[in-house]
Design a protein around this nucleic acid. Sequence first.
DNA 1: TATTGTTATACTCTATAACTATA
DNA 2: TATAGTTATAGAGTATAACAATA
Lengths: 153, 153
Amino acid sequence: MAKPPAANPIEAHLGYWLRFVSNHVSHAFSRKLAGRGVTVAEWVLLRELFEADRVAPSRLAERLGLTRGAVSKLADRLAAKSLATRMANGDDRRYQALVLTAEGRALVPKLSALADRNDAEFFGHLGQAEREWLIAAMQAIVRHHDLRTIPVD
Amino acid sequence: MAKPPAANPIEAHLGYWLRFVSNHVSHAFSRKLAGRGVTVAEWVLLRELFEADRVAPSRLAERLGLTRGAVSKLADRLAAKSLATRMANGDDRRYQALVLTAEGRALVPKLSALADRNDAEFFGHLGQAEREWLIAAMQAIVRHHDLRTIPVD
DNA sequence: TATTGTTATACTCTATAACTATA
DNA sequence: TATAGTTATAGAGTATAACAATA
């Protein structure tokens, strides 16, 4: 009698293979960012601030699927690194805005170049058509499930 | 004058979209596992032990791309939950083996069913052909870069 | 000396929940 | 009371480096 396959092979799961590739890509990127003294979570926040200029922490928490406490701590670290600062925001004094410092604003394009390089290293060997096909497939899944929060970790 | 695009759009990166989908899939799975009192890292170790019967911690560290210290702590937690135990292994008394307990062995198929369900929830709407195409694409990337360590986090 | 495993230490990431200030 | 943000606490996950036992 053969041993019954009590557990299905996890290698049949698309999620397993996505995670396999995605984690290697992320780890490689994380190592590149470390050379600039920045973590992936910090990078995600920096990107958001770069694009939106001034953002309330609660808005970031919503977009990134984090608690306000988590954003608060991330903001602390960006502030400690002189990459972002807190500012008053509008009339309601409960609201703040997080804003990049000049140093932070200057850093983002450099980190962005690292991201470009990382993506090219992992996927540059694919044809343009295949890369676009895969991106479209992932975007379709995101739309199908109405996934909204931008991944941080 | 339009503001120059000082940072390339990260949305052009395949890595970004893989991470977007992969993280949502992993988080959903993590929540399912939490209902059984198990973390994703613990699940990965349990799978390895289920398949190999007895494995030396150093071997696990190698396969999973972790330090021996990290595996040691994970083994502590599995032992605390009565899912795995440490045993002597062979003649060289420096070596151990980690082995599933009966409880651990009984649990894995249940967790595996959660993994099946999670994958079906996220990708069940795709055609069989598309799912297989995507899996093959990921496997090709893994082969191309000779990625070996099984992702834990 | 070299190797296996453990432990000490530290940092990131994140949550929950209590707290402060403001409305 | 309700909301924005902070802080206290806790735990997972991981690394580096020092250590103990064994070879």
